[in-house]
Amino acid sequence: MASTPTTAPLRSAEEVVANSRALIPGLRERIFATEELRALPDATIEDADKAGIFSLLLPRSLGGSGGDLAQAVEVMRTLAQGDPTAAWTLGFLMCHNYLLARWPQEALDEFFKDGRPAQMAGVANPPGRAKAVEGGYRVSGRWSYCSGVMHAEWVSLIGLVEGEDVPSFFLVPRDEVTVHDTWDVSGMKGSGSHDVEVADLFVPEHLVRSLATEFTRRSPGSELHAEPLYGYDSRDLVMLIVPVVMLGGAEAILEGYRERLGKRRAAFSPTLTGDTTAGQTRFARATATLRTASALLDAMVRRITEANAAGPDELSAELRTMCELDCQTIARLTWDAAQICLQGSGSSIFRSGDITQHYVRDLLTLRGHATIDDDHILGKAGALLLGRDAEVKGGLVGQ
């Protein structure tokens, strides 16, 4: 059943960022309950709603905080320090409100008719099939990895209309979608990323939109909302989710490792690990690695923001490719830092009640995400850097 957010009071984006920090203890306390449920507990959804997380990126005209890219990144990174699974799911629900607000006014009147943020889950490839009929389309298909669907009111499907070359988004009510219980995994358990399916479902025309109007700076929302973020290509935000959540999770692992250095004895020695050269060196290496990842993230966010502020032109394919490379590099560095900590932590972290192993499983699962696929991104960036590719074309969600 979807968890319905209340009509929370309007908050500034700065308040929401501050509120996200206060959620960390509760997220950590509920980590194993989240894994057992294979969804976020109601308390997590309620706390996030009260904190204003879902409204952060909505424009003020829709009751939101009108937050910017840097603030979205900071909130997701902070939530991941509490629980990467929760940060992933809450981050999607937050970002999906931004995506919904980019639709034309007729759709906005339906999504936000209750004066509160909407809850939407979404899927990407492979596209389903759609056929144009009077007043809309008939859609059929089955899609995997629908993160957050257990908390959604809406589901965004991707389908290819007969006779068209570019897929379209189809927005459908959650209760018209069949959810198949397929998310039986070791990491990111609580994201509830089950398969979803529809069969010959009618979708009215005003809830259908070509991808060509999404992966551009000129979406319908850019004409409706004054906030600068609505003049961005949606990929500028969505491609950051994986590396940002991984960074926050790795920072939590480093925090736990620091505490362990003050308690754990070195092997076959009465000396605390933190008092050994090996322990100190390992902690310094992990810290330096995460500082490098953090600096790269900050530079990328600044570069995207400055490029969008410079004028109305689309960001170049070359810049997008370099940003994808940065995302992949941040993900790699965060996993490297996590491994440095793990190798100096002993076997006790793998006890079932130790949350460190939860962070590890989450990060390892995210490390395999398609949007940071090593072979694809490194090959694409290498071709560009070597001048072997005359034209670099982007695909779905930062690819």
Rank of each mutant, 00 (worst) to 15 (best):
P9I: 03
S12C: 07
A13V: 01
E15F: 02
G26A: 11
F32D: 10
A33L: 11
T34A: 11
T34G: 03
E35M: 04
G63H: 08
S65A: 15
G66E: 06
G66V: 14
A70K: 00
V75P: 00
M76F: 06
M76D: 03
A80V: 00
T85G: 14
T89M: 07
T89L: 13
F92E: 13
N97Y: 01
R102E: 09
R102Y: 05
P104F: 05
A107T: 13
L108K: 01
Q119K: 12
Q119E: 12
G122K: 05
V123T: 03
R129K: 15
A130G: 01
E134F: 01
V139T: 10
S147V: 02
V155T: 02
L157C: 00
G159E: 01
E162W: 09
F169A: 08
F170N: 02
L171H: 11
D175E: 14
D175A: 08
V177C: 04
T182L: 09
T182D: 01
S193P: 02
D195Y: 14
V196N: 02
L201Y: 02
V203W: 10
E205W: 04
S210R: 13
T213M: 06
T213W: 05
G221F: 01
L224R: 02
A226P: 05
A226H: 04
G231A: 12
Y232K: 01
S234Y: 08
L237Q: 04
I253F: 14
G256V: 07
Y257E: 05
E259S: 15
R260S: 14
K263R: 15
R265D: 12
T273C: 09
G274W: 10
T277Y: 09
A278W: 05
A286R: 04
R291L: 14
D298T: 04
A299E: 15
R303S: 14
T305H: 02
E306N: 07
N308Y: 09
G311W: 13
S316R: 05
A317P: 03
A317Q: 10
T329E: 05
T334A: 15
T334D: 12
D336M: 13
S345L: 10
S345D: 12
I349A: 03
T356E: 13
T356A: 10
T356P: 05
D362R: 02
D362V: 03
L364Q: 13
L364G: 09
T371Y: 05
T371R: 06
D374C: 03
D375T: 13
L384D: 05
E391S: 09
K393L: 11
G394H: 14
G398Q: 07
